[in-house]
């Protein structure tokens, strides 16, 4: 077969359909996150709460329900769609590798911190700090494997 016979379709941009969908899903997620944060901020403001959303300060019931629904219902639904329809297999592998490293970081860091705390060598374990460590490692490995 003459390889020159295979030609690119003309008049189209050079993004695979999955890649376009991937970008659109990520953009939609950013918009959703922004709108949710704005809604939560407005609800908290009307309830007289001045604390930051990213803190341990008390939240009003509507904000707590809104954010919980976002995390438990919307996020998994988007994640399932994103994995099945939007990302290609190389990104799927990068994402999986990130989860693998993050899981080991959690496996090592959480009990170590707990043991050191019990021995009086560290402050009490902070669940949010461990969660953030998990997410940062996952994200860094994912980005490295996808782009580098």
């Amino acid at each position: 077969m003459d390889l020159k016979e295979i030609r690119m379709p003309e008049g189209q941009d050079a993004y695979a359909p999955r890649e376009k969908l991937n970008r659109n899903v990520l953009l939609a997620c950013q918009i959703l996150a922004g709108l949710s944060a704005l809604a939560a901020f407005m609800i908290e403001r009307s309830a007289g709460n001045e604390g930051s959303l990213i803190s341990d300060s008390a939240l009003s019931v509507p904000t707590a329900i809104l954010l919980a629904i976002l995390w438990v219902v919307i996020l998994p639904a988007i994640a399932v769609f994103w994995h099945r329809k939007a990302i290609d297999e190389q990104e799927e592998a990068a994402f999986r590798d990130g989860a693998y490293f993050a899981a080991y970081a959690f496996l090592v860091a959480a009990p170590t911190w707990w043991i050191l705390w019990r021995g009086g060598l560290a402050p009490a374990p902070d669940g949010i700090a461990i969660y953030l460590l998990f997410m940062v490692i996952w994200t860094l490995v994912w980005l490295k494997k996808k782009y580098m």
Partner: peptide, 9 residues
Amino acid sequence: GQQLDVSRQ
């Protein structure tokens, strides 16, 4: 990548 429906990366 467009032909194979995968990203440039």
